[in-house]
Amino acid sequence: MNPKTVKASKPPRLLLEGLFAFPPNREILGGTAYFILEKTGNILIDCPFLDEDNCSFLQQQGGVKWLVITHRGGIGQSVKDWQKRLDCEVVIQEQEAYLLPEVPVTTFETEIVLGDNITGIWTPGHSPGASCVYWNHHQGVLFTGRHLLPDNQGQITPLRLGKTFHWFRQLQSVAQLRDRFSSETLNYLCPGANTGFLRGKGLIDNAYQQLLTLDLEKLRQQPTRF
């Protein structure tokens, strides 16, 4: 299938040197995809809207080596088409690979290293194979899919949704990220949804300090949001 002739509403936005964010994609429930420029191979995180403008932009930047899917809701109907168009490697946590039966994929269990500065990290809870992607640039950037999202105040938090796979495992994954990083290694967070709550900033700074302030015990009692 050729890319759709409908144009995306806005071009990708430069957030930091080497990092772009695409407009929310209605095919994945308003999810935000990100594009990272790396010398060892460019990385696309989740699927932007499939149209000629987005395809041309990615090709002009040198193409995509890896397309990383952070959770089952980020798959959409265009993964197969993006893979063919970009001739890229699709990376997904092993528990959700079955959702892409017609796409050749590279799977991982707990972690995967892509190039020199990118690591995929399994963070189950939101979905069985939910993952985050860590970029070792700009004092550390973490792409969280729907594992951690901004609330209506722009503060990062896990959300207990109707589609949440396992809430307590999600909180355990948050604790593991908190223990893994520090203020020196985690500076920014790029969520895969709810980016409108960032009020134009496009990303969350001071990310590690926000992780530290999360009251995981209180969050255990958080009601489900539908």
Rank of each mutant, 00 (worst) to 15 (best):
L198E: 04
L216K: 09
A33D: 06
E102T: 12
I45N: 03
D116N: 14
N2L: 12
N152R: 04
Q61L: 14
E17V: 11
G76N: 04
G73A: 01
L15T: 00
E27G: 10
F20G: 08
E184T: 10
S183I: 12
G154W: 00
T164S: 07
L186T: 07
L37K: 13
I28R: 04
R72Y: 03
G192H: 05
G125F: 13
G125V: 10
A193Q: 07
S56P: 01
F35E: 12
E38W: 08
F49H: 06
W122I: 12
V141P: 07
S131W: 07
T164H: 04
L16V: 10
L58C: 09
L148D: 06
A130I: 08
E52G: 12
Y134I: 02
L171Y: 08
I112R: 15
L203S: 03
Q61A: 14
F20H: 11
G74M: 02
T157P: 01
G145P: 06
T5R: 06
R160F: 05
R199G: 04
S131D: 13
I28M: 04
G18C: 11
L149A: 06
R160L: 05
N194I: 00
L211Q: 05
L29Y: 14
Y188N: 06
I204H: 00
G73F: 02
E217Q: 10
V64H: 04
L171Q: 10
G162N: 14
S78V: 04
L171W: 09
L67V: 04
G73Q: 07
T70Q: 14
D46Q: 13
H147I: 08
V6E: 12
D46E: 11
P12N: 00
F35Q: 06
K7R: 10
F35R: 11
K7T: 07
P101G: 09
L216E: 03
G120D: 14
V113S: 15
D151S: 00
P223G: 01
I69D: 07
V79N: 01
L148H: 01
K65F: 00
W135C: 12
S127D: 15
P150T: 00
C132D: 15
S131M: 13
K163R: 08
W167I: 06
A193T: 04
L16Q: 13
L67A: 11
E96C: 09
I112V: 15
I36G: 12
P124H: 11
G125L: 14
N152D: 14
G63W: 02
T32F: 04
D179Y: 12
S127R: 13
L219C: 09
I45M: 09
L189R: 02
V79E: 04
R13Y: 00
G31Q: 06
A97Q: 09
R180N: 08
P3H: 01
K10P: 02
N42I: 09
L203K: 04
E94G: 06
K218D: 10
G73C: 02
T70P: 03
C190T: 07
G73M: 03
Y34L: 08
E94H: 14
I75N: 07
K10R: 11
Q221V: 02
A130Q: 12
G63N: 10
K7F: 01
L159T: 09
N2T: 11
I118S: 14
D46G: 02
